[in-house]
């Protein structure tokens, strides 16, 4: 059984690491999702895994504006606050 983090930053980087094949600790806030090689299928996988692990929906129009890891972490934090 894998241990899954709950804070937005760790969750985001853990999932991005799983999808891109890179070590989570090599991903920093300024990393762009495109630099991680995320294509459209990768973005779909990211959205679905984030929703599954955080239990909160991520609207498509908000995910569309996510370019960097920092953008993603801010989105997750704001959705956590509004939950």
């Amino acid at each position: 059984m894998s241990i899954q983090a709950t804070d937005p930053q760790t969750v985001a980087r853990q999932i991005l690491g799983e999808i891109s094949g890179r070590a989570a600790n090599s991903i920093d806030a300024s990393t762009r999702l495109s630099d991680l090689g995320l294509d459209s299928l990768g973005r779909l996988t990211l959205a679905v895994l984030l929703e599954e692990r955080t239990g909160r929906p991520l609207p498509d129009h908000k995910m569309l504006s996510v370019r960097t890891v920092n953008d993603l972490e801010r989105l997750l934090t704001s959705s956590e606050r509004s939950a």
Partner: peptide, 23 residues
């Protein structure tokens, strides 16, 4: 719009030529 999945979600944008647009 570039959509995919079941239910389909918008994941980006597509060019006239069929390729995905960048950020």
């Amino acid at each position: 719009g570039l959509v995919m999945g079941n239910p389909a979600r918008q994941l980006g944008w597509s060019c006239m030529c069929g390729h995905r647009l960048n950020d």
